[in-house]
C-alpha cells in the first residue's frame, strides 16, 4: 500500500508541476514525472512479495516458475509505454525549442496568441 502511495505522491508532484509551473521545460518534466508515476504503478501491480524476476532459468520447472515469478505483463506494458513517452517527450522538447525561437521565452503564460 505504501508503494502505491509512493506512486501517487510522484503523480501529484508531476501534476503540481504541470499545473503550476510557467516554464515549458518544467511542464514537460511534470509530464515525464507523471508518466513515470504511472509506470511505477503498473510495475507495482505485477509485484509479488518475495517473487522472482519472470525469467525462466535452466533447470526450473514451469510450475515453480509460475508460482514464484512476478507478472511479466505489466513490465512489457511499461516498456511499451516508455517507448511511447519517449516519442512524446522528444516531440514536446522539439516544439518547445521551436516555440522559444518564435517567442523568445519559455513562459507559457506569454505564449497565448490563441484564445477565445
Amino acid at each position: 500500500m505504501l508503494t502505491y502511495l509512493l506512486a501517487f505522491i510522484l503523480f501529484a508532484v508531476g501534476l503540481y508541476s504541470v499545473i503550476n509551473k510557467r516554464n515549458l521545460i518544467k511542464i514537460i518534466m511534470g509530464i515525464i514525472i507523471m508518466e513515470h508515476a504511472v509506470n511505477a504503478f503498473l510495475i507495482l501491480i505485477g509485484y509479488r512479495l518475495s517473487g522472482e524476476a519472470p525469467i525462466l532459468e535452466e533447470g526450473m520447472a514451469i510450475s515453480e516458475f509460475v508460482n514464484t515469478a512476478m507478472d511479466p505483463l505489466p513490465q512489457a506494458l511499461v516498456i511499451t509505454s516508455i517507448v511511447i513517452s519517449l516519442g512524446v517527450v522528444a516531440l514536446m522538447v522539439a516544439i518547445a525549442v521551436r516555440l522559444y525561437q518564435h517567442y523568445g521565452t519559455f513562459d507559457i503564460t506569454e505564449i497565448r496568441k490563441l484564445r477565445g
Partner: peptide
Amino acid sequence: RGPEELEASFKYLIMGAVGSIFILLGIA
C-alpha cells in the same frame, strides 16, 4: 511551424499527454 501552429501543437500535446497518462493509469 508558425508561432500559432506551434503554440496550438504544444497545448494539444500537453493536454493529449495528460489524457494518455489518464488512460494508461486507467488501464493499469
